[in-house]
């Protein structure tokens, strides 16, 4: 079994939003995308997607509508709103700032060692 990483707190929302930038998706699709795009390093307890999705709906960052899938089943598809897109931009730049800061610290520590 490959080692799986737990998500940093608060990053799930960002990942969902990012996933939705390509196309509207249903919950299962989102879970699959995250898993695939991260080469199966990032897995979420799939059920926890749903509270997160409700949170995004309440914030107005995504919209939801029921559609039929290719296999002809009813599924709820989530679409990124404009506001969600703005939010994603903000979160991404914030996240990158933090990652690069952490990176600098780690490099420095390695250099000193």
């Amino acid at each position: 079994m490959t080692k799986k990483s737990d998500l940093l707190p608060g990053t799930l929302d960002m990942l969902i939003l990012k996933t939705l930038t390509r196309a509207p998706q249903h919950g299962y699709g989102i879970a699959l995308s995250i898993k695939r795009l991260s080469d199966e390093v990032l897995t979420v307890e799939e059920g926890s997607l749903y509270p997160a999705l409700q949170r995004l709906l309440v914030q107005g960052w995504v919209k939801a509508e029921w559609k039929m899938t290719e296999t002809n089943r009813r599924a709820r598809y989530y679409t990124l709103t404009d506001e969600g897109r703005r939010q994603l931009g903000q979160e991404l730049s914030e996240f990158e700032r933090m990652i690069s800061a952490i990176g600098r610290v780690l490099r420095d520590v390695e250099g000193a060692a």
Partner: peptide, 17 residues
């Protein structure tokens, strides 16, 4: 198993909204 505790997720979703 992959989905996790359905009831808890429902509870949490309810709490969110």
């Amino acid at each position: 198993r992959r989905f996790g505790n359905t009831t808890r997720m429902k509870e949490r979703s309810h709490e969110v909204v």
